[in-house]
Amino acid sequence: MSVIKSTRIQSIDILRGVVMVLMALDHTRDYFHLDASLNNPTNIETTTPILFFTRFITHYCAPVFVFLAGTSAFLYGNNKTKPKLFKFLFTRGLWLIFLEIFVNSFNWTFDYTYSLIALQVIWAIGIGMIALSFLVLLPKKVILGIGIILVAGHNLLDKTIAEGTSFQSIIWYMLHQPNSIPISGTRFAYIIYPVIPWIGLIALGYCFGSFYTRGFCAETRKKWLLSLGIGAIVLFFIIRGTNMYGDLTPWSTQDTFTKTVMSFFKVTKYPPSLSYILITIGPSLLFLLAIEKAKNKITDFFLVFGRVPLFYYFLHIFVIHSFAIIGVILFNEGWRDILSNISDRSIIGLAKYGYSLFVVYLVWIGIVALLYLPSKKYMIYKANNKQKWWLSYL
């Protein structure tokens, strides 16, 4: 890798790069796995241990992505006035929501009529940044308290269920209950990422950025990373073990030990439960501790993706979806009929013509390798053109 001077925190970018690469695995599975449209990979009755693990390991992507977005916001605003930070977070949040609706929805469906608008992680970060733009005007201890309350307490709302398309129901779908909303005719929006816990997580990530300010004692930071990481994992096992709170779906003893373990780790992502956040953020903090001083070819590889996350995010979905269509054309004699019957070229339709999990892993590795060079070139371009304000939005 070319030597690039940067004031960015390397360990944070490496962690972000790792989850970005894992994200490609999950999305490759969505498009290429034969079973993707038929069964949920966490369905204990139909899944396999390797398929379950493939899905579980990618659970780390969204929470780490959101958490570190908050951390990056803190580091970005560390030497800026609160009004300037407010403006940046508010406008970038709006920009991300725009990208989610008009770019990401198209990447997922290749449907220029936008019959489906999927509000996913980019939407959640966008809303989180808008919320954070107001939160940063408050004392940091207050931000921390709000973050803890939203992350730890939102499962108290699990039993509140809205129905229909009233204004109140739509607001509730946005806040805490995944659901679809009709827009007009056959068009609808699907809110996959309700925002209450994600706002809490981005707020916690913002406070976490304090550990990486210039002059902060490295040994003290390591002690905090160790304590918070282990504490989150221990708390996960306590809360999940009691089966009383912290997740919409309780675990249960199954007919085999393996299935029981899978049931225990089958945590809820939509919206992310307290258990889900604890078992993903906890190990991630320990990972940050482990790689704080790491510098080798492997970390350099992940560093590339971690420094251009938004560019890589949109590019990898477009490429994976394109390759899925190419796969249908190359390996199905009746591909014209197949594609003509998929009105929006959607993920669900293509997945019916998928492949084994082994092929999924091979395609994933190939796609990540393919995206490395353009991501690296863009990383270098950003590093050499810091004076261009618009790059901070990409």
Rank of each mutant, 00 (worst) to 15 (best):
T7S: 15
S11M: 10
I12K: 01
I12P: 02
D13E: 11
I14L: 09
R16P: 05
G17E: 10
D26W: 14
L34G: 02
N39I: 00
N39Y: 08
I44W: 14
I44D: 06
E45R: 15
T47E: 01
P49D: 06
P49Y: 10
F53H: 08
T54A: 12
I57S: 06
F65C: 06
V66R: 03
F67C: 02
T71K: 14
F74N: 05
F74P: 01
G77T: 02
N79M: 02
T81H: 00
F86R: 10
F86A: 00
L89E: 04
F90D: 02
T91F: 14
L94A: 15
E100H: 06
E100P: 03
N107D: 14
F110L: 09
D111L: 00
Y114I: 07
Y114D: 00
S115V: 03
L119E: 04
F134R: 06
F134P: 00
K140L: 12
V142P: 09
I143C: 11
I146T: 03
G147N: 13
H154E: 08
S166P: 03
S166N: 07
S169W: 00
Q177S: 01
S180R: 12
S180W: 00
P182Q: 09
S184G: 00
T186L: 08
A189G: 02
P194A: 11
I196K: 06
P197W: 02
P197E: 02
W198L: 10
G200D: 01
L204E: 01
G205I: 05
S210T: 15
S210P: 04
C217Y: 14
T220P: 09
R221N: 04
K222A: 12
L225V: 05
S227F: 15
L235R: 08
L235E: 08
Y245M: 08
D247E: 07
T253P: 06
D255G: 05
V261E: 06
T268N: 05
Y270R: 09
S273V: 01
S284V: 10
A290G: 13
F305Y: 09
Y312I: 02
H316G: 10
H316M: 10
I317M: 07
G327C: 11
G334N: 14
S340Q: 14
S343I: 15
D344E: 09
A351N: 02
K352H: 14
V360A: 04
I365Q: 02
I367T: 03
S375M: 01
Y381P: 03
A383T: 01
A383Y: 02
N384Y: 04
K388L: 09
W390I: 04
L391Q: 01
